[in-house]
Design a protein around this nucleic acid. Structure first.
Lengths: 386, 386
DNA sequence: GGACTTACTTTTGGCGCGAAACAATTGCTG
DNA sequence: CAGCAATTGTTTCGCGCCAAAAGTAAGTCC
């Protein structure tokens, strides 16, 4: 498979900072860039010239819309040519592979999913290779592949431990590179989502930023100084040990009153079933709680209070500028957002800065997109760290 | 008062980074500096030369001790001339002013305390002015003054709110500068201690570092990327809103089960008195607990569990490389350190990196020293931020 | 149309850095 | 003890990157 890999031009540190700033913060004039990067106007002419010549940036028409018709020579904003390169992102679940093609800006331009009928590493890599082959036909200039997996990933290449795939130390990046000839980055799915939001989403340009995901499990990501902090217990069930309420419910999966017991979808379903004898989907439970049915109300309320307590604790200790709440379980906010807010308030000083809490519903393609962003980062930052 | 203020030589960014590295990390050879700062050997000759000529650095004899007698030309370590400048640090309490004179390395070379008989801002400033006048006689080349106050301080100059002094918006820095002619930095005492430990203490060279103080109140300091994070509720009783154990004791001062109720010295004394009818000092209570007296054991044990829970939560969310436990209440660790450790373990993932917990007993002179370090930082970093 | 304002470009000079050759100072080896 | 290897530090040189300043471009305002 010989994809059209025109090599990314080698960038000087100055050029790279310009490229990233434009990539992340949209069209910007040279003057604006000079202000943001603390450089002189002259330097910007120098730095942008080769970037424009190489086709990475273009001058875009002012569009007249945002122009407030102020006097003086109008600025000519620069923007990245978003579709000059394409990226592939995969999210592997137990029974499906979700794939997306994105632009350099991480906008999704195509989706392609496939059921996963085997967990054999080589066969999974085969599936990914085939999906890549199909996608590359419509999207040449593919620059890299990112893969998100639930589980513990080492060195952005090896799946050290994945409970649902039953993998240990599988060199997935290598396997897929062999089949595609493209650079591959493998990362824990939550970590990938965090990095993605740091560049292109809720955490854009923030210094301290937290991502909390609730769904089948609990996910936590910490970004400090624009970089994600890696930690040992990452995606190894740490939520079972976050004791939020010592008097909370006891479930088969987590310790009494743990974040997992209180907040994850399987455990909320377990609690409701144990109390009412009827098994229902998460959405049905939320609807029942909204309708006022006693047991679901109690369980959902307890979950909401737990979430608020967690958010408050994180705010108290980390003091992030923003907390992003993501995952399949965020529907909780719609039904019991008020309770969450109350719990946050109860665990926080009245004078403390209000918690900026953003909610984002995310489906599997968002997870795949997060993985694609990792590939973008690796390319733009030059393979080094990210 | 005309102190011998030879001006600190203006430093280029490169020179400043060398000066700080040597100041903070002790004697270092040029080669070692080159390695740490990522510069070439040639650059280090260039950068160190003016620093040596200005008298800020000196070549020190190898001392032969650490020399492992390896072959090659022996290195000539550079060190700061610690007593080339002196600094003054004050800690103001309700009824005393504690003062220290330190070297550039923040080593205390003199102490001088005085009772405080008034809380009138001008008179307090007079006291500080007089103490400065006395100290400057024996310690010329005084370069700056740092003042630590319990309470909320704005812009490192104005005491916005101090409960025990009953001050509001007192421009203390200005008042003391008028009387001494020296640059003055005012800061919250916990914040000063945190900055001090970041440069010269437990947090030296760390990227993520937390200071937790227990004593009359609760103090919290967060250092990320080598810089302290400021927050609005700083020293405004936030500990009353950290609910550690919803079933914890209720005290007059804090909300039920709050860190303040469980951990501060006055509240521990209150609890023991309420249960036994006898008022005892903190030390007596700790001793009684160590001796096995039931009620003190219960209260101390609960406090230790609360402390462990807090430490675990901080570790889980912030993932600091180290947590420093300071203040007058750290005696708790001697009596119930085991219980604290157990509580940490109970609230943390088994695979998580072990918490590096350091305990430091600190008296009032340590707080004053912390304030002096702020003056050092301002001088070395060039009055800008710190 | 001229004055003014803002955006960008070109030119120039300097600073800071690394590369590389060189000097200094020791241990090791025969 | 002479010569060699190893390591630190110095000097010289040239390049890259940047800011400052002067010049050009392109619009608004009166």
């Amino acid at each position: 498979m010989t994809a059209g890999i025109a090599s990314w031009p080698p960038l000087s540190p100055g050029e790279r900072s310009v490229a990233i700033e434009v990539l992340v913060h949209g069209p910007l004039s040279r003057t604006e860039l000079a202000r943001r990067l603390g450089l002189s106007a002259g330097s910007l002419t120098r730095l942008t010239k080769p970037l424009i010549e190489s086709g990475l940036l273009v001058e875009v028409a002012e569009a007249g819309v945002s122009a407030e018709a102020r006097q003086g020579r109008p600025s000519t904003p620069l923007d990245v040519v978003a579709d000059s390169w394409s990226f592939l992102g995969f999210k592997i679940t137990e029974d499906m592979v979700y794939g997306v093609v994105t632009t350099l800006r991480s906008d999704i331009v195509a989706r392609h999913d496939r059921p996963l009928t085997t967990h054999d590493p080589a066969e999974v890599a085969d599936v990914l290779g085939e999906m890549t082959a199909e996608l590359v036909r419509d999207h040449p200039r593919l620059a890299g592949i990112g893969i998100g997996v639930g589980g513990f990933v080492q060195d952005r290449a090896v799946v050290g431990e994945s409970p649902f795939l039953l993998w240990r130390d599988v060199p997935l990046a290598e396997l897929v590179e062999e089949r595609t000839g493209l650079p591959v980055v493998v990362e824990n799915d939550v970590a990938a989502l965090v990095e993605s939001e740091t560049w292109f989403g809720a955490g854009r340009g923030l210094d301290r930023f937290v991502v909390l995901t609730i769904g089948a499990g609990i996910g936590y990501g910490l970004v400090l100084g624009g970089k994600r902090v890696a930690y040992a217990e990452e995606d190894r069930g740490f939520g079972r040990h976050w004791i939020v309420d010592p008097n909370g419910p006891l479930t088969p999966d987590g310790r009494r009153g743990s974040a997992v017991s209180l907040l994850t979808i399987p455990n909320i379903r377990y609690q409701v079933q144990a109390a009412t004898g009827r098994d229902r989907t998460y959405e049905e439970i939320l609807a029942a709680a909204a309708a006022g049915e006693p047991m679901p109300v109690r369980v959902v309320d307890e979950a909401a209070r737990a979430l608020g307590t967690l958010v408050a604790q994180i705010s108290n200790f980390v003091m992030p500028q923003k907390i992003l709440l993501a995952g399949e379980g965020v529907g909780l906010m719609d039904v019991a957002g008020k309770t969450v807010e109350d719990a946050v308030r109860d665990n926080r000083h009245p004078l403390a800065a209000p918690v900026e809490l953003e909610t984002k519903v995310s489906d599997f393609h968002d997870w795949a997109r997060g993985a694609a962003v990792l590939a973008i980062k690796v390319l733009v930052l030059g393979s080094a760290e990210a």
